[in-house]
Simulated scan of single mutants.
Amino acid sequence: MKNILITGGVGFIGSNLALKLVDLGYVVTVLDNLSEQIHGLNPKDSSLYKSILGKVNFIRGNVTCREDIERSVKGQDAIIHLAAETGTGQSMYEIEKYSKVNVSGTALILDVLVNNKNSVKKFILASSRAVYGEGKYKRMNSEVVYPECRSVDNMQQGNFEMTDKNGQFLEALATDEDSKLHPTSYYGLTKLQQEQMVQLICGSVGINYVILRYQNVFGTGQSLLNPYTGILSIFSTQILNGKSLNIFEDGLMTRDFVNIEDTVEATIRSLEMETANNEIINIGSGVAKTVFSMANLLVSAYEINVPTEISGEFRVGDIRHNFADVTKAKQLLKFQPKVSFENGISDFTNWVMQQPRNDNHLNVSFQELKDKGFLKS
């Protein structure tokens, strides 16, 4: 396989992936709509766009447009489908938008592959840990359970940890690919729908597929403008602008942060290795980090003392804990994350310090959530 199409290839993951593939000798085509939410009002001035300019075949278009897809797919050996709306909280009230891009856009790509003559041999879908919802836990007696989302009433009383129906506390476990799939956000639901469509259609027409369930990807090049996703970039922008950090719940919820370099390596391995064909694979570090500790690490790295407020506010649809079981990635991709969280944060913050300081309009996104009833206290 030589010719690779990346949808959403001017995004954070996509641009880094495109440049690495070019370095490896691949011919890369990028289809991207240069979303204002990611790239700002003048998207052609964004660093992400400039990084791929002249190095790939760039098509400005949309996965919801059949003509754009048909033009992009011609002559391609593989498709890496990254284009998606990604904000978990935003997805709860921008339902039609998320459905149109994530679900209908993926359906349209698959429709073109089935009905138009093409040379595509492999389809890689960027999915998300959001398909697991709250993920995998165990009771004190070691029984494995998959709890439903937390109740609003409990969280309004300050009870944020996961419990069973009897009020017994549950211990978070690494979530493997065979875990129950029960998204707690509309974003997660659209990613699950994508997965099911890809498995069904690609499996039916003989196109090898790989579904990668990414955890929280971070690193240099991440958009600092998007107030709806990317907690490290959101907090960084607040700190550098001297604004306080609003940490939801009690700050002890955990996330699995995986560096962009590791994410790109794992994705390329899934493209090149036949052991990955027709598989679903978690891509993460396998390590849980609390949001509070991450915020303190950022404040220390920037050496800017801003107020840190653990507000007790919470977003409906947010999960408490989720970190990946990466055993399958090690077995099938021979993949082992190389960049530690601490080293990755150091590289990230050094890069952020060199970027223009812009307002990410976080207060606007918070107000939207409150107005729609999805941010509560």
Score class of each variant (00 low, 15 high):
138 K>D: 07
130 A>F: 09
114 V>C: 05
168 Q>C: 02
161 E>A: 08
121 K>N: 14
167 G>W: 07
140 M>P: 01
110 L>Q: 05
144 V>C: 03
137 Y>E: 14
123 F>Q: 07
156 Q>W: 00
164 D>G: 01
133 G>T: 08
169 F>G: 14
140 M>T: 13
158 G>M: 05
143 E>V: 06
142 S>W: 00
155 M>K: 12
116 N>A: 04
131 V>N: 00
153 D>H: 06
157 Q>R: 08
155 M>Y: 02
114 V>S: 09
136 K>S: 08
129 R>Q: 12
160 F>Q: 05
152 V>R: 14
118 N>C: 09
111 D>N: 12
166 N>L: 09
120 V>H: 03
131 V>G: 04
121 K>M: 12
114 V>Q: 06
151 S>T: 15
114 V>W: 06
127 S>A: 05
125 L>H: 09
110 L>W: 00
139 R>F: 01
162 M>L: 06
162 M>A: 13
144 V>D: 03
126 A>N: 15
146 Y>L: 05
111 D>G: 00
149 C>F: 10
130 A>K: 03
147 P>A: 08
144 V>N: 02
114 V>H: 06
110 L>Y: 02
125 L>P: 04
168 Q>G: 02
153 D>M: 10
163 T>M: 11
160 F>E: 07
134 E>G: 01
144 V>G: 02
158 G>I: 09
131 V>S: 03
169 F>T: 12
143 E>K: 02
120 V>A: 01
143 E>F: 02
163 T>N: 01
132 Y>I: 08
128 S>P: 03
145 V>Q: 11
137 Y>S: 06
122 K>W: 10
122 K>L: 13
165 K>A: 06
113 L>E: 02
137 Y>T: 05
123 F>Y: 11
136 K>E: 15
116 N>F: 01
144 V>L: 09
147 P>G: 11
169 F>V: 12
165 K>Y: 03
159 N>L: 15
116 N>C: 11
119 S>C: 11
123 F>A: 15
154 N>F: 03
128 S>C: 10
116 N>K: 03
148 E>F: 11
120 V>W: 02
125 L>S: 10
118 N>W: 04
157 Q>H: 09
160 F>Y: 13
149 C>D: 15
119 S>L: 14
133 G>V: 09
156 Q>D: 03
149 C>W: 09
142 S>D: 14
